[in-house]
Design a protein around this nucleic acid. Sequence first.
DNA 1: TAGGCCCTGGACAACGTTGTCATCGCGGGA
DNA 2: TCCCGCGATGACAACGTTGTCCAGGGCCTA
Lengths: 353, 353
Amino acid sequence: MAETTRRPAHRYGNRPTMKDVAARAGVGLKTVSRVVNGEAGVTADTERRVQEAIEALGFRRNDSARVLRKGRTASVGLVLEDLADPFYGPLSRAVEEVARAHGALLINGSSAEDPDREQELALALCARRVDGLIVIPAGADHRYLEPEMRAGIATVFVDRPAGRIDADVVLSDSFGGARAGVAHLIAHGHRRIGFIGDQPRIHTAVERLRGYRAAMEDAELAVDDAWVSLGSTEPQRVREALTAMLSGPNPVTAVFAGNNRVTVTAVRELAGREGPVAFVGFDDIELADLLGITVIAQDAAALGRTAAERLFRRLDGVDDAPARTVLDTVLIPRGSGEIPPAQAVSAPGRRPR
Amino acid sequence: MAETTRRPAHRYGNRPTMKDVAARAGVGLKTVSRVVNGEAGVTADTERRVQEAIEALGFRRNDSARVLRKGRTASVGLVLEDLADPFYGPLSRAVEEVARAHGALLINGSSAEDPDREQELALALCARRVDGLIVIPAGADHRYLEPEMRAGIATVFVDRPAGRIDADVVLSDSFGGARAGVAHLIAHGHRRIGFIGDQPRIHTAVERLRGYRAAMEDAELAVDDAWVSLGSTEPQRVREALTAMLSGPNPVTAVFAGNNRVTVTAVRELAGREGPVAFVGFDDIELADLLGITVIAQDAAALGRTAAERLFRRLDGVDDAPARTVLDTVLIPRGSGEIPPAQAVSAPGRRPR
DNA sequence: TAGGCCCTGGACAACGTTGTCATCGCGGGA
DNA sequence: TCCCGCGATGACAACGTTGTCCAGGGCCTA
């Protein structure tokens, strides 16, 4: 019987190691390590020999082993809702840029708005020992991350606050933005204004609804329950909500959309209806300028950048108390939000209370 | 002098290891490993003790060490141009979904269309020993990946072919799509059609230009050099190109845009001009339906999915020859491409040659 | 009751790298 | 001339996990 080869099946496709390079260059293992890492203390001649061996063998340092030894992975994890959502693209890119500036790579995954999946992903990243973690929460309870944070994985939450733990958070001013947007509609004469938002377990959805209610209250306007709808951002659901608030006995003359997904569907739907309905949406959208859509814009890239910078400050050892950073939003008037109320015939204006 | 602690500074924040768990549970190291990995051969009672110890210590397996030992990282790398570009979001997400189905995480980075940065990123991912690599090329020479591929890192190129090496490629039919788009304009009566594309070193830009020329040639239409422009997708550049082809002595009556970035700027610019100009753009855009923009749509998600599936088939050991997969594009007429030529007064139609 | 087998558990090495420390050789100062 | 210091180099252990292999004990069978 032939002797079985002793080569373990798991070697990385038989890649050369530092040991191989050392043997070929006729030097010690550590010398190769020095050359590879650009450390001092190697003669020019030795270095040349080592470089030649590296070249000849096609050696590339195995960062897995390096990570194990050094305890730092030079990578950060990003758990977001959906990489395909145009809102998260710039955010993700901004995080990547900051990471790159710090020599770290970015591992990211989509939770698909599922708390279990968020947890699964976040913990998988922790098992990889990412140096830091940036999370856009899908769930409302992040105590599962406490042991990880205690164990040294810096964590920053973005876009929505962490649930039931104390941690760094970077947010946009959802409340203030929504309030300003609705106030804008009120300033243009609207008294009956609808609100369509995301699911009620999502913090931003609730905050924006709160902003809507605050603006209505500021103007002493009553809110009809039929005007308010929180739920999935599925087009079907948004269309139904819109139909309901536009066709009831007390129809709205203006609509505020709680995020970019809702805006896209609402704008489509409104375009297909007759009679002008004023509209303001939270989140800016590409080409919204051409469509004349008035929006409350938040700076997704700034969210990502701010969160990443905070993360790396933590990694650099800054150890102050967890902070909540809130970024301003901007109202960009483009027409849809400045339409005056239709001359209401069937629906007399409500008396302010 | 106090004795210095012997604890190495590099330990992962003092996380418990399997050894610690074993000690606490009063079992051997390997038994813990068995429990953690769900391997058979552990009594229910022993397993319970181990689980309790894991719970109590907050142990989480260190995947870095696991990776080193097993030789598989269960991660794939994706090098794309810009994570913030809405075209790459769905592509990236699709890759992620396939990876997830195979239990792998996704590490991605943006090359910013810079060949050096592409190489730097790709090699960094190889050093991490990602199991596979998906690359959207920025550069034209990928021989630098040959040693890596030989060493066992499966690699698939998407959106654009690899340069100077033989590898799997998944593309959209840029040539056919552009040709169909331009033919569409010709079918609606246009004879003078402009083309604005991305930089000439980008393969898709060249292919789409080729498609444009083919369509013109099919219809026996001459092409004026002033009608064709390849260059950066910076708004400023695109505006200039547009102005040039619309205001020369021989102005175009229709414009074909080479990708989504160009389309966005061109549509903005055309909206600000008087006189209708027909328009077809390569790549679909959100809300293009509302704006009535006729496009040649490619399925970004399908590109990503197809590439990822091919990658994982390679990782599963399939070893056939590198293949080139070309996905069809779809023409979606929405109005802008069906505008007839303006009644030309100043610019008499050119005679077909 | 003895023998053998299976099931459980543990000791040990290895994955490829880096930190620590020892060694070697050479030049300069006493 | 001898010794010290210093720069260059290498031997070795350790990082935390998993694969291999062996030991011991309990149970079944003859």
